Each structure stands twice: as structure tokens, then as C-alpha cells.
Amino acid sequence: MATIVLLHGGGAGGWMWRYVAPVLTAAGHSVFTPTFTGVGDRHHLISRDITHWTHVLDVANLLEFNELEDVVLVGYSYGGSVIPGVVSLQPGRVSKALYLDAIIMHAGERLSEAMGYMDTETASQVERTLASGEGPLGAGTLEIVRAEAKAHPHKMSPERQAWMLAKITDIPLRSMVDPVRVGADSLTIPVEYLAVPEGSPVVNMHQRARELGWNISAAPDGCDHTFPFGQPEIAFDFIMKHI
């Protein structure tokens, strides 16, 4: 049986795997669902000192202190950007990476620019401001997610969407403007990518996956980027197929 570490999206937390992790566990796998510092159940720790590398360390330390081996790292959305850094720190512990419509980063690039939220100059200035101890703690993720859901309801029941939106928190702004230290091109382990063909906010990442020569599968029709919340069977099936 596999050891699986599920990495959540921005503003979410380990809680987002509520409908995925128990099914994987029931299938006999060992499953871990860490929450990045400053979000979810660790939102009380949000600060200007939390960088993207902090989130890499969150996961790398989980692997080390739990003595995990032959790990399958599964990254959803923001979680995908963390995978290369974790592998660089714990190369002997990770055997495979699965990206669920996830972000792919180049070394030295900032998430805010990769996602089109800021240009390079603005992101750099914001990072310097935060490093000096000034500026907002959060990136405004909560407001963005709620506004998008109101304008374009996600492909899930209203009850499930309300559950999701009630738990979304902000994400530390500095983690979005801090240059990523390790890029996806450094990965030498097998990688599988699940892409949502229509309406995904990370659609530009699909081309990056192609350029890296990764195996890409298309998510079933009728789902959107939030499928791990609203259609968790899609995530479960993909993970089971590739572990």
C-alpha cells in the first residue's frame, strides 16, 4: 500500500481532503493531510514572515519527522508549487508526484506573477515592503474566492459550496510574492498531471506541463477546478490509478 501526502490549495487546508482522504485510507493507504502555515486550521499563525519556502519546509519536515518513505506527493492548485522544493530537500523519500490541476513554477518566479495577479516589478516591491515589516498580512484570497463563487457557482451542490466557502481563509501575501527557490524542471521522479480542460484558473499551467514532457490526463466533462471539494471521486480515481 502507498504512503500519500495530500497538499491543499491556496486558502484551504488539510480539511479540504475530507471526502478524499478517508476513502484512500479505507483502501489501505497511509494518508497525511498537512496544512500550510498561516492558512486553514493554522490561520492564527499568519504573518509577513511566511514565505513560499515556509510551506515547502512544512511538508519536508512532515516527511522527515514521520520517517516517511516511498511517498506519493499529491498537489492541488497552490500545492503543486510546493512539490519541487519538498523533493529537493527530501529526495530519497518521494517516489512520485501527482498534480491535480496544479500550479507549476519556475525557479525565481513569484506565484503572483505566474497567476497574472501582479507584474514582476509590483510583486518585487510588495515582497520588499513585507520583508521590512510593513504591508498587509494576507493576499485577499478569501474575498476573491467568495466573489467568484457568487458570480459563477461551482459545479457542486449549494450545500457543498457553502461548506467550502465557510472554511476558506486568506493566504499569507508574502508566500505569493516570494520567489520560488526550486522549479518544476528539477523533478526527475515520475509525474502525472490531471488537467481541467474548461474554465480552469490555472489553464496556463497545462502548457507548462506539456513543455516539461509530463503525462497529462484530462479531467472528466462536467467538472471544474474545485473538483476535490465537490466531486472528490475524480481526485480519488486519479490517485488510485497512478499510485
Rank of each mutant, 00 (worst) to 15 (best):
A166K: 06
T25I: 13
A123P: 03
H154S: 14
V39Y: 06
A114I: 09
E127S: 14
D170N: 05
V94S: 03
V86S: 03
E69R: 15
S30M: 00
E192P: 00
H44W: 12
H52W: 08
Q161M: 15
R174M: 07
H8D: 03
G13K: 09
E109C: 10
D70C: 04
G108V: 13
V72N: 00
G116S: 10
D170S: 06
A2G: 08
E69N: 09
R210V: 06
K96P: 00
E198K: 14
E233P: 03
L6C: 01
R48Y: 06
I216D: 00
E143H: 09
A27R: 05
M240L: 14
S186E: 13
T188A: 13
L212Q: 12
A139V: 15
M16C: 15
P153D: 02
Y76R: 05
T188L: 14
K155H: 03
F65C: 03
T122E: 10
D58H: 01
T188H: 12
P201M: 02
E121N: 12
L73F: 06
L173F: 05
Q161V: 08
W15A: 04
E67G: 11
E127C: 13
F238Q: 02
S132H: 01
V86M: 12
G108C: 12
S186N: 08
E143C: 04
Y193F: 14
D221W: 00
T37A: 10
T141Q: 05
